[in-house]
Structures are given as structure tokens and as C-alpha cells.
Design a protein around this nucleic acid. Sequence first.
DNA 1: TTGTAGGCGTTATCAA
DNA 2: TTGATAACGCCTACAA
Lengths: 337, 337
Amino acid sequence: MTMPRKRGPTIRDVAKAAAVSTATVSKFMSGSQRFSAEVEARIAAAVQQLGWSLNPMARSMATGLTGNVGMVVLDICNPHFTSMVKGAARAAKVAGLNLIVADAAETQAPELAVLQALARRVDGLIVSARLPRPMLEALFAAGTPVVLYGGPSPQPNYQSVSCDNFLAGRILGMHLRERGFRRISYIAFPVAPWSEERWRGLQQAFDGVEASFTVFHATSPTTEEGERLASQVLLSGEMPEVVVGFNDLIALGLLAEARALGVSVPAQVAVAGFDNTAYGRLQSPSLTSVDMLSEQVGEQAMLRLAGIIAGTPVDGDSVLRSRLVVRESTAAPQAMV
Amino acid sequence: MTMPRKRGPTIRDVAKAAAVSTATVSKFMSGSQRFSAEVEARIAAAVQQLGWSLNPMARSMATGLTGNVGMVVLDICNPHFTSMVKGAARAAKVAGLNLIVADAAETQAPELAVLQALARRVDGLIVSARLPRPMLEALFAAGTPVVLYGGPSPQPNYQSVSCDNFLAGRILGMHLRERGFRRISYIAFPVAPWSEERWRGLQQAFDGVEASFTVFHATSPTTEEGERLASQVLLSGEMPEVVVGFNDLIALGLLAEARALGVSVPAQVAVAGFDNTAYGRLQSPSLTSVDMLSEQVGEQAMLRLAGIIAGTPVDGDSVLRSRLVVRESTAAPQAMV
DNA sequence: TTGTAGGCGTTATCAA
DNA sequence: TTGATAACGCCTACAA
């Protein structure tokens, strides 16, 4: 039933109308060669009159280049990813590349076929390091330039850009330690390796002092999940002095539900997260968070990708240094005040 | 300097390896025809061995169909748009279409050329009704199937999906009127026609009662702008009884800055917004908002687009009915309590 | 059941 | 300064 699109005028139509060859039109359009004023005028007129514009797909077929780069995000509703996209978009623009975004959320277990199809429509791809191994390998086999985000490359084939997760956990841990917190709960995201990294860093910060840790497991990186876990985290057993969510969304959900449960933050329990999303700052209490430099990660990734595409790759992985943003949600615990 | 991508094996290589013709391979791959078991096995083996996969661009050139649809959003960091994308992605998947998202934010004044290039890489487009007129016309001239979101089509050419903005303003207005608010300030977004619609609806709800209105103008639809305007809105002249932001981001910024200014919400001033974004619910006080059904708008738009592409268009515009979500930020004003 | 050959709209090479 | 023409990789009548 699907009707093919109406096909517009082609370069041949323009050439005929301007009484020149297609080669001339092509060269004129790309600016790669100048012609006599008269010829140029004729071409311009023909283009104008026919309302012709270059077919980028045909062009890509001939040149092997598309001018597009793709970025596949795990969930477009997560501010962390939209910030990354923002950074990547800026860098893409500078590089004269066109960014197209694909959301992998709806297409659970992003099918290999979809990814491959995307891969062949772009000059390069920015994808999560968390992507299933076989997919990364398929991309590599196809020769697609790829830059990974969110963690080191599981294989040495690819470049990656990420924000130091261990360090992030550690600086948050140091802050909490200084403030006198000793009974810590962490909400982890088992499917993401970086969650574990953050957790390790967090614990390491308490080396040498007596501290107790409890871990809870989230099934999705959303505010809803934070809300869902809140009662379990706050009310089962002894209340922790501080709860750290593996990201801000979890922490925001926790904050809201704590309020609903009548648990006061930070008076009774402190809360912190990662990503430093815009909404954490606006909360009351405002949310302490480790800035994972989402936007810069996106920007760096695109920079590297553009480098690969241009044949001037920068090598080695780049690991950004996260930055702690202390706000109200981690004021010193009651006992210390 | 830019190196063309390494070119992989082609259908001809596969045909040769399997000792069949390219036509046979093509038909086998598309499943449009069956062959003898032996031939099929040979093809499958060849495909496997060469690691060949169809080149979607070449296929598109031949068929005139891409299987992709594009959606251009005004700012990917705005939850309203990400929700729309989510809805659209779901519908696209059902329709067997592939959604690619383009962010128009970085590319200020989305250049015509960029849009045209995108248009020719997809089977259809979902774009904002706020897009400059010449662009819409260019798309129309090119015969691109298009569905508009966010408002009625400025010309009768296109279908559109939106959420009734006048109604949205009105139901919020009715709510505020019932609660006894009479001194209303509205933060408008002059560049968007729907902001004006909401404002008209809001005012109309107060027909017949004495009420005073003040309008402020925002330059961007962000929380930062809400924060920036807060002191002006709250502290210049007599404080309004309620401030309505043209969207939730503005309202969230306002909420945060009111707190910073020591203005208590809703005790001293009520606040409301539009879009019912996820973060409004989590605030304290939680934000009253009109749900503009972002996700459904995206879904409907995609449904319609898929219809057009499939040659079974649904006609007429679709206008969804917004829904009021009353929360803490619009508790009755002091005077009434 | 399988193959041949022309076309999709450009670019690029080589001649003129 | 300009033009013919062969790719680019696939699809699809039409033939065999």
C-alpha cells in the first residue's frame, strides 16, 4: 500500500534546462569549479525555476559520505542524556556535521538490525559503552567510526569518553565523610558498570574510619524508581544517615517520597546523587550531586568522532574529572550539629 | 582530508559467492520470493561469510522509500519535547518506522538547507507549527509528508496535532477562580502563539468577576528564565495572588526563586504552569499544572504521519483536550482561608 | 525457479 | 571551460 514518494526534478532536468551537462551543474553546485558568468547564470536560473535541490542520498552513494553522525541514547527523557546531546550537537555543528539522535529506550534491546541500518546512514556513531558486546563488534566489523560514552571501551578497538566514575564516588564520599556521615546507603543500578564504580569510590573514601554500608538495587534509572525504593531504603531497619542514589533521578524520587513519608531531609537523613541535573538545584532542599559533565562528555565524544571521520583521530580514551556540587541535601547530620 | 568510508561487500559479491544472480539475492533477502533449499542455503552462507548487510541508502535510492521518519524538536532539553519524542517513538515502532530526532536548538533559526537535507532522508517529518512559514512551504513544495505539532497549521496544507491551548488556559483559570484568586500574573512567551492562546483562555475564565491581570514576557522557555523573572514578577508593585507560567519550566524556576526570595508558596502567592512535566509533581510544594498530553501529541502525530506515508491519511486536525492537575502550589490564597 | 539489464540521482575521471 | 560516462549498491520489470 505504501506509495513511493513523488520524485522531484533531477540534476539532469536542471542540466537540460540550462543547456549544460550534469557534470557542470554538479561542479557548480558544489562550488568546486567556476564557470563563465553566462553559464553560471543559466544554471542558477534553472535551479531556481525547477525548484531543484540536491538529493543527499544520491550524493552520499556517490561520495561514500553522508555528512551525518548519529548518537544513540538510552533514554531521551533522562536529562543526563539530553545534556549529552546538547554538547554533541554543538560540537557537530562546529565540525559541519549533522547530528541525528536515536532513542534506544522504546526499542528495548536495541536490535542489531536497527543499529546497523543507522550505522550505514551516517559517517560515524556515538553510542553507549553499555551496548551489548556483539553490537559493538558488528559496528567495528562494518568499519563504522564509533566513539563510546559512559565508560571505557570493553575492547581496545574504540575510543571512549567518560567522566571518572570512581573519582566521582570518591569525592562525594570524602564530602560525606567530612560531614560526619557514617551509616551510608547506596542505591545501585546493577545493569550499569559505572554504578559499581561510583559505589567503590564512595566506599573507598571511608577507608580508615568505621562506617557501615547498605546497598539497594534499582531496576530503572528514573524518579519513579527512586520513589518506589524510598520506603524500603528509609524505613527498613535503622534509618541511614545518608542515602546516595546512583543518579539524580533516583535521588529526586527519594527526596519527594521522603517528604511524603514524613522523613525530613537533611535533618533526619541526607541525600545525594550524580549528574547534577538542572532539577536538583531547584529542589528544596536542593540536591547535592556530583556533576558528571554530561554536556562536556557529549561534546568531547563528538570532537573525537569528527576527528576520526576527518582522518585526524585523537587517540587514547578521555576521562573527565567530575566535580562535586554541595547543596542543602547533605547538611551535617543531626548528631553532629 | 576527509576519507571516504571503507566500502564493504556488495550484493554482487554475495551473488558471485553463492553462484546466483543479484536478483535472486535481492528477492531472497527481502523475503519476497522463496527459492530451492539449496540456493537459499548457499545465499545464507555467502551472506554470513562475507558479513554483508544491505545498504539502506542504495535501497532507498532504488525504492524511493527510506523507512525513516524525522522529528525536529525545538529544544531537546525540554521535558515537554522529550515526552513527545517518547510518544512518537512508540507509534513509529508500531508502524515499522524508524524515528530520528533532530534538535533545532543549537542550530538557531533552523536553516532551510538543513531541514531540506533531512527531509530527503526520511519518508516524512513531524515538525513544530511554529516553524517559519517559508520552511513549511519549502517542505510542502518538495512533497514531503508532514505533520505539525503545537498548534494548527498556518496553512491548510498540513495536518496538525495539538492540545487545546485555549481550553488549557480556561480550565486552569476556572480552577483559580474557584479558589478565589483575583489578582493574576501571567508569564508569556511572545514568540509562541500558543502562549497567547493560553493567556486568552485564562482570562476568559474570569469573565463576570472582577479580576486584575498583569503580563510579563519571557525570552526563553527555561527554568533559568523563570528564576530571572521571579523578583520582577513577585516584588514589583503589589504581589499577585497567583502567577501562571506559560510552561512548567518557567513555573519551576519561579518556585525556586520565590523560595530564595523568602516568598512562600502557596501561602503568599500561588503558582501554576502548563505541561505537567515529571518534575513538577516532585516539587515541594508540588506544582499545579495543565497536562498538555505531550506524549499523546507525539503519538498521534506519528500515527497520522504513518497514515499519510501508507497512503491512508486521516484528515482534519486533531486537537486533544488538556487536563488539569491540581497540586499544592495553588492552595486557596491567604485571604480566603 | 532463476537471470538480465536498466534505472534511482549524484560525483568523479578523463577527454575534448 | 565544458562534456561523456562510468561508478555507487540495490530493485524490479521482463525474459528465459
